[in-house]
Design a protein around this nucleic acid. Structure first.
Lengths: 207, 207
DNA sequence: ATTTGTATTTAACAAGTGTTCTATAGCACA
DNA sequence: TGTGCTATAGAACACTTGTTAAATACAAAT
């Protein structure tokens, strides 16, 4: 991997082509577009890119180059989230199959992270998180949440889920609502179980 | 347009192909995939579809069929919305050019309607609409809003914008916050100027 | 019954395109 | 100096694919 710059250029050109034209470039397109002097050199680098898993091609199909990075991510809609019930267990792997419905979302919104899923909010118990009945929250499955990030928290004593910004303090945990007009609540670390991190909230008006 | 079924089948196949494989089918692919008995018949129908504006092709480029219907819509981010200032004037047409930034959104979220734009919320004045500082609202440019839909309303006397569900009553207009715990406000019809309809709300957590 | 326009078939050509072969150059390493 | 690996060039071949011409079928309209 001595000279990756040319491969970067090629990837960039493919991206640009796909975006601009709507279809993939040919070897010769890439040759012209990247100022490369022979088709076989392009071929050579495409083979490497494919071996590295950066692109995919179908043999014997013209213009079949696809970037592995995708613009649209299919997010499985795994169920509902409501105050009184824990959020559905996330069985990584079997995921997308189980999902009755799947939500299509651009990477603009959720980035390129993996292991994300969506939940539909049931009821108005999340109003303090500025989340309404019917909204959709997109979650990342993780137990590690940094201070200040919004997490889905299961409160063991209260037996309920809540979406709050989480802050660790000396001997307690502060759970702060997104709505700055509402007060934080405090609880002991043993009482909280982080069930995931909120990545985004979607609200569709009028269907 | 006597027999449009076959063209429907072709469109469906192209959609499927694009989605599944990631690239457009060839005339011969379509032939096989739709049980059509000759390439020229496919060609014939593709020409019609192109004339009708349903697909686009680049002459002399293999696999260049593109559906005109798009999965991703580029929404121009036209500016900010805050309580104290009217929302930016929407100069239909010149739109996308002016936009410094553009938001990519799937049709899952906003449907296929045209004339939509995005605004970034500044400040916490929209909390009663369950909209926070930094959220993005996607608007449809329209003056006609049905009862119960959420609209961006400019209140002339108060000189401020607010996002509320709108209901016409006998001699007044009821503006109801999305947050069901907050009270509606009432005003005279002359005082309200509908500036658009809210289509969706996006909230990106942690950048 | 003739016309007219849409829908279809068959076959072939020309151009686009991926692939491969051979040869060359630079560079590191021993 | 030789060996081996990566990067590059040029050209030719074979397959893929869009396009077209000419002819036929079929239904509706006159």
């Amino acid at each position: 991997m001595r000279k990756p710059e040319i491969r970067e250029r090629i990837l960039e050109y493919i991206r640009h082509s796909l975006d601009e034209k709507g279809y993939a470039p040919t070897v010769r397109d890439i040759m012209r577009g990247c100022n490369i002097s022979s088709t076989s050199l392009v071929q050579y680098h495409l083979n490497i890119l494919e071996r590295e898993g950066q692109i995919r091609r179908d043999p014997e199909v013209f213009r079949s180059i696809q970037l592995v990075e995708k613009d649209i991510i299919e997010v499985p809609l795994l169920g509902t989230i409501a105050a009184g019930e824990p959020i559905p267990v996330v069985d990584s792997g079997t995921w997308t199959n189980h999902a009755e419905e799947t939500l299509r979302v651009t990477t603009d919104l959720v980035g390129r992270r993996g292991d994300i899923y969506a939940l539909k909010v049931k009821g108005t118990s999340m109003l303090d998180a500025l989340i309404n009945d019917g909204d959709i929250v997109i979650m990342e499955a993780t137990q590690t949440v940094a201070d200040g990030e919004t997490a889905a928290v299961w409160l063991k004593n209260e037996q309920e889920v809540t979406l709050k910004k989480i802050y660790r303090e000396p001997r307690r945990i502060r759970l702060q609502p997104a709505n700055s007009e509402m007060k934080s609540i405090y609880t002991r670390p043993e009482n909280v179980e982080v069930q995931g991190k909120v990545v985004a909230v979607l609200r569709k008006l009028e269907d």
